[in-house]
Design a protein around this nucleic acid. Structure first.
Lengths: 181, 181
DNA sequence: TCGGTTTCTTTCGATGTCAAGACTCTTGAC
DNA sequence: GTCAAGAGTCTTGACATCGAAAGAAACCGA
């Protein structure tokens, strides 16, 4: 055993408890997956604090950043936003409503389809998402400070290998058959 | 840069979009952190399907597994459950209410403190959490099938190194005030 | 005994999902 | 050409869950 690499986190304790209670089970998958979940929760919290300076909530950033990434003219349909943010259409209607009231997006009729609407970033929306993104990156950089560049590359690679099969399955189901979800 | 290792996931596309739109920003932290978030979301979904056979929700498993891990007599106070599951006390009251109605836990007065309550797993609760845990482990194992044992160990280690500093901060705040755990 | 603290519950507001609905588009028979 | 049936897009409304803060009961130290 390479014994004391030990910073030791909560997951070490959880795994130890399970091994004591269920010695018959191989709980080693928790070593990876439980850490992923807990780390994600921390990231959400950290993200929230990064955004609060910009008067943004996490959900708002999700929507605005999807529009920003889309590039000029920063327009997507509610349906496309639903796909990218993994929420339901009802939720997206509500989010766009609130962002519209805040002045960060506008609704415009889709010239090519009168059923449709296009959600477009306003200049104010673009400003806020750009500065929030800069802060977010800065903060995330500090979260990664424990790791060398090589570590990060390896971590990204390992995570991609876990993620890719999960997403290709969904891609085939989602992106092709229906256009929404 | 090292070109075609390509399983390629959604994060590759998101990162590429950001590089196009904001070439001035170093968005490389997203390579790691965005993957962590997305992976966590997939895990939640997968977990849900693993539990549905046992008529459990994710939140219910969180509570029951904390009790199960505690060992005989499978008792914790609501306050301890709050700490372990990272929800508020009001939420926990509600969760215990519902688990009690389902017959998976019981509330018992704390003999040493009349303000207090001890939440105890019923035999039915223990059965359901044990079989759900077995299924969960099985499923998680398959999610990790892409990775060799060495990969998993390394991944666990890298994640621990990110997680540990985040948790020690909380440890100092939280774990000291209480003493039980 | 009294004031401050801890523990759990209750209430209220915000947000999410799901299902139903209104409107528009598309397709194909006539 | 046109009309009806079926699909697609978005919004609405009912219901459920969660968190924040206030409330009620019990503990504890002085």
């Amino acid at each position: 055993m390479s014994a004391d690499r030990r910073p030791a986190d909560d997951v070490d304790e959880i795994v130890a408890a399970w091994r004591r209670e269920r010695p018959d089970l191989d709980v080693s998958p928790l070593e990876v997956l439980s850490r992923v979940s807990r780390l994600a929760r921390r990231l959400d919290l950290a993200r929230g604090s990064a955004f609060s300076e910009h008067l943004l909530d996490g959900w708002a950033f999700d929507v605005l950043s999807a529009l920003r990434r889309a590039g000029e003219p920063y327009e997507l349909s509610p349906g496309q936003l639903v796909q990218q943010t993994l929420v339901t259409s009802g939720t997206m209607t509500n989010r766009v409503d609130r962002l519209e009231r805040s002045g960060f997006v506008g609704r415009h009729p889709d010239p090519g389809d009168r059923r449709g609407v296009l959600v477009r970033l306003t200049p104010a929306g673009r400003d806020v998402v750009d500065s929030a993104m800069a802060d977010l990156i800065e903060q995330e950089k500090s979260l990664l400070s424990e790791l060398s560049a090589a570590d990060r590359a390896q971590l990204a690679d390992l995570l991609r290998r876990m993620l890719a099969p999960l997403e290709t399955r969904e891609t085939r189901e989602t992106r092709e058959t229906r256009e929404t979800r």
